[in-house]
Design a protein around this nucleic acid. Structure first.
Lengths: 181, 181
DNA sequence: AACGCCATGTAAGCAGTTACATGATTCA
DNA sequence: TGAATCATGTAACTGCTTACATGGCGTT
């Protein structure tokens, strides 16, 4: 129930089309809120009907036309209102943790396969950490000169970095535990 | 698409009723997979139809009767099969991060309210960390004497502890950033 | 008498996923 | 010629949430 709000934040940071939003959700916004293009187009349509955003046709050459969306005053009010509401406790869904506890009920072969899968998963997150660190160097090279919005974006990115580092450490702990069984 | 598997793991660790499962999902299992009792009863019914679990009526005095569920051979096979499948990348939904970036678009009053909410959120997670640490002391007082299943449960709990510690550190970073705006 | 715990469900609705669909342009 | 990118959608389905419902027992 907050994809609307994630879209509002992203469009306030910079107006854009559904397609552009989908790309952002694969990159920066996607670090803390994922969404597919299908979902984005549907929600965007509802938000337009509700008067939270307005779409403007933009002709492009060499590319299909697009509709660029901007947040209205009413949309901004909606966001500000939502910011005041308490943060809902998140629904935790950590599949890997289920599998690790499940490893107690399979044989050596199954455990070896899980171990390999954890290693693959770890490699993915190592790549992700590198991407975050490169993004940090690129987007926030001089932390002293940032405006309010950039400082907030930066602290969220630092959260992603801290999460990935914690995860990698824990995965090493998991690998050691699986190997020692 | 893995509540079934979380239930299988929990019932393999110890058979129990729908109600008992719901309680476990509020406590230990809930650390990495949340579910309400309504959902659990529905899924449990489907799992029984599919022959993954069998329910046995248990009469109790001073309490209502209950149906205690046990995992069948077929259910165990299903779990083992699932353990071999690659871990799906998780859908990230971090509401607080959206709000923090949204703070760029509200006024000083709004930001002060958000800051107070982050403090409240932080206090909740501090309590949660304490609960985890107490649980660790209670359930795993002597890590050298644990069997395979307990070691796996322990490493998952350590993941929860590492996550909460990382989160608290990051929330301090967030609070400093908000105060310095 | 009222509240909380034990125990099990039904029903309605919404958010999100998966599959399918179209069509132009650019680049290898 | 084929693949990738840009751009926008529809349709069917599933998983999950929210609200509602029932009823006995134990405690304050």
């Amino acid at each position: 129930m907050a994809l609307e709000h994630a879209i509002l934040v992203s469009l306030l940071e910079r107006p854009g089309s559904g397609y552009e939003l989908a790309r952002r959700f694969e990159r920066s916004i996607g670090r803390f809120w994922t969404a597919t293009h299908q979902q984005i187009y549907r929600v965007l349509k509802r938000m337009e009907t509700d008067g939270w955003v307005t779409g403007e046709e933009v002709g492009q050459d060499g590319r299909p036309d697009k509709r660029s969306f901007t947040v209205t005053g009413s949309g901004r009010d909606t966001l500000v209102e939502w910011l005041r509401a308490p943060v809902a406790p998140e629904a935790v869904r950590h599949e890997l943790a289920v599998k690790i506890r499940g490893a107690a009920f399979t044989d050596d072969t199954g455990r070896a396969e899980l171990l390999a899968e954890v290693e693959r998963y770890r490699a993915d997150h190592e790549t992700l950490l590198t991407t975050y660190l490169n993004g940090e160097k690129r987007d926030f090279p001089d932390p002293m000169t940032l405006d309010a919005g950039q400082r907030l974006q930066h602290v969220v990115l630092r959260g992603g970095i801290a999460y990935e580092r914690m995860l990698l450490d824990w995965l090493d702990d998991v690998l050691d535990t699986l190997r020692a069984l």
